[in-house]
């Protein structure tokens, strides 16, 4: 496809009119490295296999036959955070679980994304009022990119959340690969729990 514009510069009429080689004229695409990389990256956002509660069942349903996450390149849930790009926090995060969620997030390689799926992960959901043991929003522990509300959100809503993540992928710069600028802020100061008494049962 011949390019008409030089990325913000004056139109390159010369290229289109004067390139005599039909092969390169038809098949060469000129783009920026950022765009090419982002395009490939957004096509294979691999989620972490990470279910917590009821929302995880809807996440499984989204992965399974009818809704088929795989259509959008995300049908390969990884069992280890080291290989995953996307963490879908699906379900209620309790105070006992919060340090583990944080650790899993830390173990993922940059660039990484987080979808908060369901009311519980956004602000405590149905347990916000009397759930003494429920974390009131996972964004008190890890930064969240996309919030998908619902209790549980429908699979279509989760798919929409995935598209939002793809948008984020598109708009990224190679120079900010660890996403330090793009990443939302975490509020609330988190401390690791002190070591528990029992051997082998700590985080």
């Amino acid at each position: 496809m011949p390019l008409k514009k030089n990325n913000g510069g004056p139109p390159r009429q010369d290229l289109e009119n004067e390139n005599p080689d039909p092969l390169t004229k038809e098949n060469v695409i000129i783009t920026s490295v950022d765009k090419a990389l982002n395009w490939t990256r957004q096509a294979s956002v691999w989620p972490l296999t990470f279910g917590l509660a009821c929302c995880a069942i809807e996440m499984m349903a989204t992965l399974a036959a009818k809704y088929d996450f795989d259509r959008f390149g995300s049908g390969v849930p990884r069992a280890t955070p080291r290989q995953a790009d996307l963490m879908i926090v699906a379900g209620t995060v309790s105070h006992k679980m919060a340090p583990r969620v944080k650790r899993l997030f830390d173990q993922m390689a940059d660039p990484k994304y987080v979808i908060a799926m369901g009311g519980c992960v956004i602000k405590g959901g149905p347990y916000a009022k009397y759930g003494y043991h429920v974390l009131q929003g996972v964004d008190r522990v890890i930064p969240v990119d996309v919030y998908v509300p619902g209790c549980p959100p429908r699979p279509e809503a989760l798919l929409e959340g995935l598209f939002k993540v793809k948008e984020l992928c598109y708009n990224e710069k190679l120079s900010d690969r660890d996403r330090s600028k793009a990443r939302p802020k975490v509020f609330g100061g988190f401390e690791w729990p002190t070591k528990t008494k029992k051997e082998g049962q700590s985080a």
Partner: peptide, 20 residues
Amino acid sequence: EYHGIVCEFEGNEDGTWGGH
């Protein structure tokens, strides 16, 4: 508060629940 994470509950006497 639990391990540095702020908790806001209506259940408390002083009504410190932030909530939605």
